[in-house]
Protein backbone atom coordinates (compact mmCIF):
# COMPACT_ATOMS: atom_id res chain seq x y z
CA UNK A 1 0.00 0.00 0.00
CA UNK A 2 2.74 2.39 1.03
CA UNK A 3 4.81 1.55 -2.03
CA UNK A 4 1.76 2.05 -4.21
CA UNK A 5 1.08 5.53 -2.96
CA UNK A 6 4.70 6.59 -3.23
CA UNK A 7 4.84 5.37 -6.83
CA UNK A 8 1.63 7.20 -7.62
CA UNK A 9 2.50 10.52 -6.04
CA UNK A 10 6.07 10.49 -7.34
CA UNK A 11 7.78 10.44 -3.96
CA UNK A 12 9.24 6.99 -4.71
CA UNK A 13 11.24 8.53 -7.56
CA UNK A 14 12.80 11.08 -5.24
CA UNK A 15 13.81 8.35 -2.83
CA UNK A 16 15.37 6.42 -5.72
CA UNK A 17 17.15 9.55 -6.90
CA UNK A 18 18.62 9.93 -3.42
CA UNK A 19 20.56 6.70 -3.99
CA UNK A 20 21.84 7.98 -7.32
CA UNK A 21 22.96 11.23 -5.74
CA UNK A 22 24.61 9.30 -2.89
CA UNK A 23 26.42 7.09 -5.40
CA UNK A 24 27.54 10.20 -7.24
CA UNK A 25 28.70 11.67 -3.94
CA UNK A 26 30.74 8.54 -3.22
CA UNK A 27 32.28 8.80 -6.69
CA UNK A 28 33.24 12.42 -6.18
CA UNK A 29 34.65 11.53 -2.78
CA UNK A 30 36.93 8.94 -4.34
CA UNK A 31 37.80 11.42 -7.07
CA UNK A 32 39.04 13.88 -4.45
CA UNK A 33 41.71 11.46 -3.32
CA UNK A 34 42.62 9.78 -6.56
CA UNK A 35 42.10 12.50 -9.12
CA UNK A 36 40.83 9.83 -11.48
CA UNK A 37 38.96 11.67 -14.23
CA UNK A 38 37.03 8.58 -15.27
CA UNK A 39 35.51 8.35 -11.80
CA UNK A 40 34.44 11.96 -11.88
CA UNK A 41 32.87 11.45 -15.30
CA UNK A 42 30.98 8.40 -14.07
CA UNK A 43 29.84 10.35 -11.01
CA UNK A 44 28.58 13.13 -13.23
CA UNK A 45 26.72 10.59 -15.37
CA UNK A 46 25.08 9.04 -12.31
CA UNK A 47 24.11 12.49 -11.10
CA UNK A 48 22.47 13.32 -14.43
CA UNK A 49 20.58 10.01 -14.25
CA UNK A 50 19.39 10.99 -10.76
CA UNK A 51 18.38 14.38 -12.08
CA UNK A 52 16.32 12.81 -14.86
CA UNK A 53 14.59 10.54 -12.33
CA UNK A 54 13.77 13.60 -10.23
CA UNK A 55 12.40 15.40 -13.25
CA UNK A 56 10.15 12.40 -13.88
CA UNK A 57 9.18 12.48 -10.20
CA UNK A 58 8.09 16.10 -10.46
CA UNK A 59 6.01 15.47 -13.56
CA UNK A 60 4.30 12.49 -11.96
CA UNK A 61 3.71 14.34 -8.68
CA UNK A 62 2.29 17.39 -10.40
CA UNK A 63 -0.10 15.32 -12.52
CA UNK A 64 -1.10 13.32 -9.46
CA UNK A 65 -1.84 16.49 -7.49
CA UNK A 66 -4.11 17.75 -10.24
CA UNK A 67 -5.81 14.39 -10.44
CA UNK A 68 -6.72 14.42 -6.77
CA UNK A 69 -8.16 17.87 -7.17
CA UNK A 70 -5.40 20.15 -5.95
CA UNK A 71 -4.96 22.88 -8.49
CA UNK A 72 -1.81 24.48 -7.19
CA UNK A 73 1.60 22.95 -7.98
CA UNK A 74 2.88 20.65 -5.22
CA UNK A 75 5.71 22.89 -4.04
CA UNK A 76 4.42 24.27 -0.80
CA UNK A 77 5.14 21.93 2.06
CA UNK A 78 8.49 21.10 3.59
CA UNK A 79 8.88 17.80 1.71
CA UNK A 80 8.31 19.31 -1.70
CA UNK A 81 10.41 22.33 -1.02
CA UNK A 82 13.39 20.24 0.16
CA UNK A 83 13.14 18.00 -2.89
CA UNK A 84 12.87 21.01 -5.16
CA UNK A 85 15.86 22.58 -3.45
CA UNK A 86 17.95 19.45 -4.11
CA UNK A 87 16.72 19.55 -7.70
CA UNK A 88 17.75 23.13 -8.44
CA UNK A 89 21.12 22.80 -6.72
CA UNK A 90 21.89 19.76 -8.88
CA UNK A 91 20.68 21.66 -11.93
CA UNK A 92 22.98 24.53 -11.00
CA UNK A 93 25.95 22.20 -10.71
CA UNK A 94 25.18 20.50 -14.02
CA UNK A 95 25.10 23.90 -15.73
CA UNK A 96 28.36 25.04 -14.11
CA UNK A 97 30.00 21.71 -14.94
CA UNK A 98 29.09 22.12 -18.61
CA UNK A 99 30.86 25.49 -18.80
CA UNK A 100 33.76 24.96 -16.41
CA UNK A 101 36.00 22.13 -15.39
CA UNK A 102 34.68 22.01 -11.85
CA UNK A 103 34.63 18.37 -10.84
CA UNK A 104 35.71 19.13 -7.30
CA UNK A 105 32.52 21.13 -6.74
CA UNK A 106 30.54 17.94 -7.31
CA UNK A 107 31.60 16.68 -3.90
CA UNK A 108 29.94 19.59 -2.04
CA UNK A 109 26.87 19.83 -4.26
CA UNK A 110 26.05 16.13 -4.06
CA UNK A 111 26.58 16.28 -0.30
CA UNK A 112 24.12 19.16 0.15
CA UNK A 113 21.63 17.61 -2.28
CA UNK A 114 21.86 14.21 -0.50
CA UNK A 115 21.23 15.84 2.85
CA UNK A 116 18.17 17.66 1.53
CA UNK A 117 16.81 14.56 -0.18
CA UNK A 118 17.49 12.32 2.82
CA UNK A 119 15.76 14.76 5.13
CA UNK A 120 12.77 14.95 2.80
CA UNK A 121 12.58 11.18 2.33
CA UNK A 122 13.09 9.99 5.89
CA UNK A 123 12.33 12.77 8.35
CA UNK A 124 8.93 12.57 10.04
CA UNK A 125 8.91 16.38 9.92
CA UNK A 126 8.47 16.21 6.18
CA UNK A 127 5.66 13.82 5.21
CA UNK A 128 5.45 13.24 1.49
CA UNK A 129 1.65 13.08 1.29
CA UNK A 130 0.23 15.88 -0.84
CA UNK A 131 -1.99 18.00 1.37
CA UNK A 132 -4.70 20.18 -0.09
CA UNK A 133 -3.56 23.75 -0.47
CA UNK A 134 -4.72 26.16 2.19
CA UNK A 135 -6.54 29.26 0.95
CA UNK A 136 -3.60 31.64 1.42
CA UNK A 137 -1.53 29.69 -1.09
CA UNK A 138 -4.18 29.25 -3.77
CA UNK A 139 -2.78 31.73 -6.22
CA UNK A 140 -1.12 31.78 -9.59
CA UNK A 141 1.67 33.84 -8.03
CA UNK A 142 2.78 30.80 -6.04
CA UNK A 143 4.57 29.00 -8.86
CA UNK A 144 6.55 32.04 -10.05
CA UNK A 145 7.39 33.08 -6.49
CA UNK A 146 8.74 29.68 -5.54
CA UNK A 147 10.54 28.90 -8.80
CA UNK A 148 12.33 32.28 -8.85
CA UNK A 149 13.42 31.95 -5.24
CA UNK A 150 14.52 28.35 -5.55
CA UNK A 151 16.60 29.14 -8.61
CA UNK A 152 18.31 31.76 -6.49
CA UNK A 153 18.67 29.34 -3.56
CA UNK A 154 20.26 26.81 -5.93
CA UNK A 155 22.70 29.41 -7.23
CA UNK A 156 23.59 30.53 -3.73
CA UNK A 157 24.09 26.89 -2.76
CA UNK A 158 26.55 26.52 -5.62
CA UNK A 159 28.33 29.75 -4.63
CA UNK A 160 28.64 28.36 -1.10
CA UNK A 161 30.40 25.28 -2.46
CA UNK A 162 32.64 27.40 -4.66
CA UNK A 163 33.42 29.70 -1.72
CA UNK A 164 34.56 26.74 0.34
CA UNK A 165 36.73 25.49 -2.51
CA UNK A 166 38.25 28.94 -2.82
CA UNK A 167 39.01 29.13 0.88
CA UNK A 168 40.60 25.68 0.88
CA UNK A 169 42.66 26.56 -2.17
CA UNK A 170 43.80 29.98 -0.99
CA UNK A 171 44.42 28.83 2.56
CA UNK A 172 47.18 26.51 1.48
CA UNK A 173 48.34 28.08 -1.74
CA UNK A 174 51.80 28.93 -0.46
CA UNK A 175 52.45 25.62 1.21
CA UNK A 176 52.66 22.36 -0.62
CA UNK A 177 49.71 21.55 -2.78
CA UNK A 178 48.08 18.25 -2.03
CA UNK A 179 46.41 16.20 -4.70
CA UNK A 180 43.02 17.65 -3.91
CA UNK A 181 44.25 21.20 -4.40
CA UNK A 182 45.87 20.48 -7.73
CA UNK A 183 42.54 19.16 -8.93
CA UNK A 184 40.89 22.49 -8.29
CA UNK A 185 40.83 25.15 -10.93
CA UNK A 186 42.88 28.25 -10.22
CA UNK A 187 41.66 30.66 -7.56
CA UNK A 188 40.94 33.25 -10.23
CA UNK A 189 38.59 30.93 -12.03
CA UNK A 190 36.80 30.02 -8.80
CA UNK A 191 36.49 33.68 -7.94
CA UNK A 192 34.94 34.46 -11.29
CA UNK A 193 32.56 31.52 -10.98
CA UNK A 194 31.49 32.68 -7.50
CA UNK A 195 30.66 36.09 -8.89
CA UNK A 196 28.74 34.77 -11.88
CA UNK A 197 26.74 32.29 -9.86
CA UNK A 198 25.89 34.88 -7.21
CA UNK A 199 24.72 37.54 -9.66
CA UNK A 200 22.55 34.93 -11.34
CA UNK A 201 21.06 34.10 -7.94
CA UNK A 202 20.71 37.75 -7.05
CA UNK A 203 18.63 38.57 -10.13
CA UNK A 204 16.26 35.72 -9.29
CA UNK A 205 16.22 36.58 -5.58
CA UNK A 206 15.20 40.14 -6.40
CA UNK A 207 12.58 38.94 -8.86
CA UNK A 208 11.31 36.42 -6.29
CA UNK A 209 10.99 39.05 -3.58
CA UNK A 210 9.19 41.43 -5.95
CA UNK A 211 6.79 38.66 -7.01
CA UNK A 212 6.22 37.84 -3.35
CA UNK A 213 5.47 41.48 -2.59
CA UNK A 214 3.02 41.65 -5.48
CA UNK A 215 1.35 38.52 -4.19
CA UNK A 216 1.18 39.86 -0.65
CA UNK A 217 -0.37 42.99 -2.08
CA UNK A 218 -3.17 40.95 -3.59
CA UNK A 219 -3.62 38.52 -0.71
CA UNK A 220 -2.60 40.09 2.58
CA UNK A 221 -3.45 43.74 2.26
CA UNK A 222 0.00 45.18 1.66
CA UNK A 223 3.20 44.48 -0.22
CA UNK A 224 5.40 44.48 2.86
CA UNK A 225 4.48 43.61 6.45
CA UNK A 226 7.87 42.97 8.10
CA UNK A 227 6.85 39.35 8.41
CA UNK A 228 9.97 37.39 9.56
CA UNK A 229 10.34 35.66 6.20
CA UNK A 230 10.08 38.96 4.37
CA UNK A 231 12.60 40.52 6.71
CA UNK A 232 15.03 37.66 6.28
CA UNK A 233 14.69 37.83 2.53
CA UNK A 234 15.68 41.48 2.84
CA UNK A 235 18.66 40.46 4.99
CA UNK A 236 19.64 37.90 2.34
CA UNK A 237 19.29 40.56 -0.34
CA UNK A 238 21.47 42.98 1.65
CA UNK A 239 24.11 40.30 2.20
CA UNK A 240 24.49 39.74 -1.52
CA UNK A 241 24.26 43.47 -2.19
CA UNK A 242 27.25 43.70 0.12
CA UNK A 243 28.97 41.09 -2.04
CA UNK A 244 28.32 43.06 -5.23
CA UNK A 245 29.43 46.38 -3.81
CA UNK A 246 32.40 45.15 -1.79
CA UNK A 247 34.18 44.39 -5.07
CA UNK A 248 34.56 48.10 -5.66
CA UNK A 249 36.37 48.77 -2.41
CA UNK A 250 40.04 48.24 -1.90
CA UNK A 251 41.12 45.50 0.40
CA UNK A 252 38.24 43.20 -0.41
CA UNK A 253 40.09 40.43 -2.16
CA UNK A 254 38.93 37.05 -3.26
CA UNK A 255 39.18 35.57 0.19
CA UNK A 256 36.75 37.99 1.80
CA UNK A 257 34.41 37.57 -1.14
CA UNK A 258 34.53 33.82 -0.71
CA UNK A 259 33.64 34.30 2.94
CA UNK A 260 30.64 36.42 2.00
CA UNK A 261 29.55 33.67 -0.40
CA UNK A 262 29.73 31.13 2.44
CA UNK A 263 28.04 33.35 5.03
CA UNK A 264 25.45 34.43 2.46
CA UNK A 265 24.31 30.85 2.05
CA UNK A 266 24.02 30.41 5.81
CA UNK A 267 21.70 33.44 5.74
CA UNK A 268 19.78 31.85 2.87
CA UNK A 269 19.35 28.61 4.81
CA UNK A 270 18.14 30.53 7.83
CA UNK A 271 15.71 32.47 5.66
CA UNK A 272 14.52 29.24 4.06
CA UNK A 273 14.25 26.93 7.08
CA UNK A 274 15.41 28.69 10.23
CA UNK A 275 12.68 31.31 10.08
CA UNK A 276 10.01 28.61 9.99
CA UNK A 277 11.56 26.51 12.71
CA UNK A 278 12.25 29.36 15.08
CA UNK A 279 9.94 32.24 14.27
CA UNK A 280 6.29 31.81 13.36
CA UNK A 281 5.06 34.04 10.57
CA UNK A 282 2.81 34.24 7.58
CA UNK A 283 4.98 31.78 5.67
CA UNK A 284 5.38 28.38 7.18
CA UNK A 285 6.27 24.93 6.06
CA UNK A 286 8.17 23.74 9.06
CA UNK A 287 5.25 23.62 11.45
CA UNK A 288 2.92 21.01 10.04
CA UNK A 289 -0.74 21.86 10.15
CA UNK A 290 -0.24 25.49 10.97
CA UNK A 291 -2.07 27.63 8.51
CA UNK A 292 -0.38 30.81 7.43
CA UNK A 293 -3.07 33.39 7.95
CA UNK A 294 -6.43 32.22 9.19
Amino acid sequence: MFANVSALDGSLYFTISLFFVLASFAGYFIFLFTGNKTISRISFGILIAGFIIQTAGFVIRWIYAYKIGIDTPPLVDLYDSMVFFAYVIILGFILIRIFYDFDALGFIITLVASLALAFASFSPLAPSAIEPTIPALQSYWLLYHIVALFLSYGAFGASFGLGILYLIKSGKSNKKQGRFLTLLPSSNIIEEAIYKVIVFGLVFLTAGIVIGAAWADSAWGGYWSWDPKETWSLITFLTYMLFIHARFTKGWGGKKMAWIAVIGFVVVIFCYLGVDLIIPGLHSYATPGSAPLL
Binding site: T231, W232, L234, I235, L238, M241, L242, H245, T249, I279
Partner: peptide
Protein backbone atom coordinates in the same frame (compact mmCIF):
# COMPACT_ATOMS: atom_id res chain seq x y z
CA UNK B 1 31.09 56.13 -1.10
CA UNK B 2 30.71 52.40 -1.46
CA UNK B 3 32.14 52.05 2.04
CA UNK B 4 29.17 53.89 3.49
CA UNK B 5 26.86 51.67 1.45
CA UNK B 6 28.56 48.57 2.84
CA UNK B 7 28.30 49.87 6.38
CA UNK B 8 24.58 50.60 5.85
CA UNK B 9 23.89 47.16 4.35
CA UNK B 10 25.39 45.53 7.42
CA UNK B 11 23.75 47.87 9.94
CA UNK B 12 20.28 47.60 8.40
CA UNK B 13 20.61 43.81 8.15
CA UNK B 14 21.62 43.53 11.82
CA UNK B 15 18.76 45.68 13.12
CA UNK B 16 16.29 43.94 10.83
CA UNK B 17 17.49 40.65 12.33
CA UNK B 18 16.84 41.89 15.87
CA UNK B 19 13.28 42.71 14.81
CA UNK B 20 12.64 39.12 13.77
CA UNK B 21 13.71 37.66 17.09
CA UNK B 22 11.68 40.00 19.27
CA UNK B 23 8.02 39.97 18.44
CA UNK B 24 7.20 43.46 17.21
Amino acid sequence: SVKLAIFLFIAIAVFAMVGTFINQ
